[in-house]
Design a protein around this nucleic acid. Structure first.
Lengths: 263, 263
DNA sequence: CAAGTCCTTTTCGCTATGCGTAAACAATAG
DNA sequence: CTATTGTTTACGCATAGCGAAAAGGACTTG
């Protein structure tokens, strides 16, 4: 019945479903029972039973007394291994540490992942001031973060189009940009200045400056930022003092990366 | 042809193979080409092409110009999500930070994972002295680490038997314990004293003390340790000064854990 | 440049695999 | 004790996924 259009012979559905189950569990804040899980992934629960049985026999998933499924830390090894492939990350980390030391602020690095950004490095200098407790691997929206703006301002047009297609500009504060026109205008500004700002657009009390880390073609492969509490650092201070530091660090990383072989 | 013996109807082979590919890539220090990969996972390369095609369409794997496969950081999100399920980890982390502060040394926490131990927390106080640059999720052998000894000394007999069956006591230094008899003797000693030592058994220049974190039945669910360079801390010092601190911290964590609901 | 090796991709037909429906089983609630 | 909702098992069918082998590339070597 209808192999549709594509290279379907080369796509393993059960593998995709299994990974989808893992992702679903990862995205849910709390463990899930079978029924809920099959509802969300949209499969028959017999199927989900089989998937979870397999995952659990392989040790990626555990079932608690209330028959709910949890991910196990076995997945951690996979996650970390994936980073060691990212040679440039290590290089960047070095410079970020310097930046964190010089500014005394929290410094982050993230990459584009699907339609969000994902943290790859986080150096938290200021004990827990920020309203978010982010870890590596956690994700944030693109439209209301400085790194998101940097990543998109220097993405290629095709990628940008893909992401902005039906993008939902969810308002998280009343500073959040909520329309594509405004956002595109903002991206222009970012391209002009070479850095991007987030002034309480993600969360009240929080500002950040970000600069893109670009490859030789000018495309952003990552973005770094400096995040500060509003009460301690003014917007002007961000622009005059921190923005240049962020850009300078990004440039140094780019230089260092230039001398590496490319994937 | 021969469904063998088991509940085979409930095990999804393609999912298992796919995950096996991911694990294989994770364990390899460098990216792999198709041929090598299919050799290692023991499947037809048509099969591996399909698996990798799927994984890559889903964004878990990337192929570089030389047609070699890499894991992508997309897996990070999964790994970290798996830790947030571990409520006790957070609790433990708090006490470990204290311990690190009090001793000024590097402090770690790990759990049993397959036949190795895996790091879940690492607080590195001493800038890069240690010969290993370990990250969360990385693994070490059990027989030549203090945490490995703690974990096994307080594992239940069945688990211990499973692990020691055909265990390979690879000698990493000339202090490494290399026979099961010696190792079992060592475990007895650990049970008696309540803590375990590693005196240059993993790597020259490195010592550590570890104490188990046990559940109500006495089984170790994790182990913490304090790791030091040999040049700075004597064996005697470890036993008289650090070992008690490690045990005390472990006990405090156990108490704190007692007041949590169990999975 | 032709012959040879090794790697990768695609084709093709078969059958075991994994699917959904539906029935049994379990647990809670009313 | 019947209803309701969640979980597991049974069963038979369709097809998804498999391996063997051919076709297509890339890179050496004579």
């Amino acid at each position: 019945m209808a192999n549709g259009d594509d290279n379907s012979r080369y796509f393993l559905k059960s593998l995709a479903k299994g990974l989808n189950v893992l992702q679903t569990l990862a995205e849910s804040p709390n463990p899930m029972a079978l029924a809920e899980l099959s509802r969300i992934v949209g499969s028959n629960n017999a199927t989900v039973t089989r998937i979870c049985g397999t995952l659990s026999k392989l040790g990626f998933v555990r079932r608690d007394r209330q028959r709910r499924f949890h991910l196990t830390p076995k997945l951690l090894s996979l996650g970390y291994a994936s980073m060691s492939g990212l040679g440039w990350r290590q290089v960047a980390e070095h410079y970020l540490e310097e930046l964190a030391e010089n500014t005394g602020e929290t410094v982050n690095l993230s990459v584009l992942q699907d339609r969000e950004l994902m943290y790859l490095v986080r150096i938290n200098n200021t004990g827990r001031i920020l309203p978010f407790d982010l870890q590596l691997g956690s994700r944030l929206p693109l439209h209301c973060t400085s790194m998101g703006k940097s990543l998109l301002a220097f993405a290629d047009e095709a990628e940008l189009a893909r992401i902005l297609k039906d993008y939902e500009f969810a308002p998280l504060t009343n500073h959040t940009i909520t329309s594509e026109e405004d956002f595109r205008r903002e991206l222009h500004k970012v391209r002009d200045r070479g850095y991007s700002l987030n002034d309480e657009e993600l969360s009240y009390g929080l500002r950040s400056v970000s600069a893109p880390i670009r490859d030789l073609s000018g495309r952003a492969i990552a973005a770094l930022n400096i995040a500060v509490p509003t009460k301690r650092v003014s917007l002007e201070d961000m622009e005059t003092r921190l923005a240049p530091l962020a850009m300078e660090t990004a440039e140094r990383i780019q230089k260092a990366l230039g001398s590496m072989e490319n994937a």
